[in-house]
Design a protein around this nucleic acid. Structure first.
Lengths: 132, 132
DNA sequence: ATCTATTTGCAAATTATTATCATTTGCATC
DNA sequence: GATGCAAATGATAATAATTTGCAAATAGAT
């Protein structure tokens, strides 16, 4: 028996897709992934729901790579790496993001800090062997 | 007597503009600033030269805010703050960006780290009083 | 002055994202 | 089941940022 409600089927699928993948996909990448299960899903729906999730604090935009925004459903601040060779966006879970940074930023700047992002760019393991 | 070479007049003006301002302007903001001195400058020229500077390592793109890429001629890694109220991008020169982070990222990830970016978002002093 | 390579302006093309609007869907009520 | 309503969705047009193509202008060398 199908237990889950049918309401917001696609909306939930979009969020679930983000939560299960760690690709930090773009809207189009989400669209392509969901097309298999929902062949009639529209790209507009993906954009719409991503914007909604963002305003609800369920999803963050991590960076924009090659002109396209990349999303993440992991809201706890963590460290990212962006490969300039293949445009991959990945987590660096081994690295700590000092909690003190945010407070320090707020104190020294006088601004109201809402979010903190530490991002490295370079070549991933695969690309660094390809690109000498 | 006009000492400076006339070669690359506009190209140099674009770089100089970035070096003198700390706004972290977008291409269009650079264009607007240069229009006063070079009324016939073209937006395409600004884009073209910004891309060239980036590939030459003279300019970095700091972030994309509201869909527009923002540039910086200060290449030494430093800390930025982006105001979600007025889209200002500013430096947080008081904050240190630990040099050790880059090495740690490279060691724990196996990637080849080329750049490191620490960015805070929130409301600047002016906007935080306006937006309750 | 002429030749050549580079730079630039202009306008069209491209790309990502947002807005519009008609249709569909899920659910409650009859 | 039929019906009504509000929200969600699909298709497509509109918008905005960036890029590209090409002819004209420019700088330096011959």
């Amino acid at each position: 028996m199908e237990a889950a409600t049918k309401q917001f089927r696609k909306r939930n699928a979009i969020l679930a897709c983000l939560q299960r993948t760690h690709n930090h996909p773009s809207a189009e990448m989400v669209y392509d992934m969901l097309r298999q299960e929902y062949p009639d899903i529209s790209l507009a729906t993906v954009y719409r729901n991503l914007a909604r999730f963002k305003s609800q604090g369920l999803v963050n935009s991590v960076a924009t790579v090659g002109g396209a925004e990349r999303f993440d459903a992991v809201m706890a601040p963590h460290v990212h790496f962006i490969c300039t060779g293949c445009d991959a966006v990945m987590d660096l879970p081994q690295m700590e993001l000092p909690q003190s940074l945010r407070a320090e930023a707020e104190r020294t700047s006088g601004c109201c800090v809402q979010d903190c992002r530490l991002t490295f760019t370079g070549l991933c393991e695969r690309c660094k062997t390809r690109n000498p």
